[in-house]
Simulated scan of single mutants.
Amino acid sequence: MRTSYRRLTTVLGLAAASASVLALGTAPAQAAGYVFDAYNALSSPSAKTEFAQDGEILYALDIKSDGHGVVAQWRYNSSSAVHSYYHGGGFGTVGKWDLSFAEGTTLQIRACLQDTSNGSPYSCGGWEYAKA
């Protein structure tokens, strides 16, 4: 009886240790995959910009069927140089751009509307902070 009790506690101990290692091993990956959001308006938004920390991907989402294209903008923390990425695919579509920043870089993102690729962004939302 004593031997089977030892085996059971050993097996349970190994299972608990394995579960702990798995949980601790996945926690940093989940934290690194944070997604930052910005909208062009607080009420009834029609454009959304997302920055995915994991992979440093910038997305422009057209979330309203209004005939306008969308723009994802980013800049380094409070810089005057603004980078714009236009997406005119229409409602329900997503533009995607693979960017590259040094780990821990602080940037700001926002969403805007734009009617053509050579047009100008308008109806932009406020700047939201993001971190690479």
Rank of each mutant, 00 (worst) to 15 (best):
T49V: 15
T10N: 04
R75A: 10
A81V: 13
S46I: 00
Y76H: 00
A38I: 00
L12N: 00
S43F: 13
T105H: 03
W97K: 00
S123D: 11
S43M: 05
S100T: 13
R7S: 07
D66H: 09
A47V: 07
S120M: 03
K131P: 05
G126S: 14
Y122T: 03
S65M: 09
P28H: 07
Q108I: 03
Q53P: 10
P121F: 04
Y122N: 01
L14W: 15
L22H: 11
A17V: 13
N40Y: 03
A29F: 15
Q30V: 01
A52K: 15
A47M: 09
H87F: 13
A132M: 06
V70Y: 03
F36K: 14
C124P: 02
N118A: 15
H68N: 12
T26K: 08
Y129L: 14
S18N: 08
Q114F: 01
D62A: 03
G67W: 08
Y5F: 05
A47H: 07
S20T: 12
A102F: 14
W74Q: 04
T93Y: 04
T93G: 09
G126E: 14
L113D: 13
G55T: 02
M1S: 07
T106A: 06
T116E: 03
V71H: 00
V71Q: 03
N118K: 15
A23F: 12
A27S: 05
F91P: 06
Q53D: 07
G126M: 09
A60G: 15
S84Q: 08
L113M: 12
L113H: 11
V21S: 04
H68P: 02
G25D: 03
D115N: 13
V94I: 01
S123V: 08
Q114N: 12
Q53A: 15
S120C: 06
Y76K: 06
W127R: 06
E103M: 11
G67I: 08
T116K: 01
G90W: 06
R110N: 05
A19L: 12
L8D: 12
M1Q: 11
A23W: 07
E128F: 04
T49R: 05
H83W: 05
A16G: 14
R7Y: 08
N40R: 01
A60L: 07
K64V: 10
L22T: 12
Y86K: 05
Y34N: 08
T10K: 01
Y85L: 14
G55S: 00
A81G: 15
D62Q: 06
V21K: 02
D62Y: 00
G119A: 06
P28N: 00
F91E: 02
K64M: 08
Q108C: 05
C124Q: 06
A17D: 11
Y129S: 15
L22M: 13
Y34H: 15
G13I: 04
D54L: 13
L99G: 09
G88W: 11
G92K: 08
F91I: 01
F36Q: 10
S20H: 11
D54V: 09
R75D: 10
S4H: 12
W97E: 01
L107V: 12
H68R: 06
K48P: 05
C124M: 00
A47G: 12
S100E: 14
L14S: 15
L22S: 12
G88C: 10
R2K: 10
Q53L: 03
A31S: 10
V82F: 13
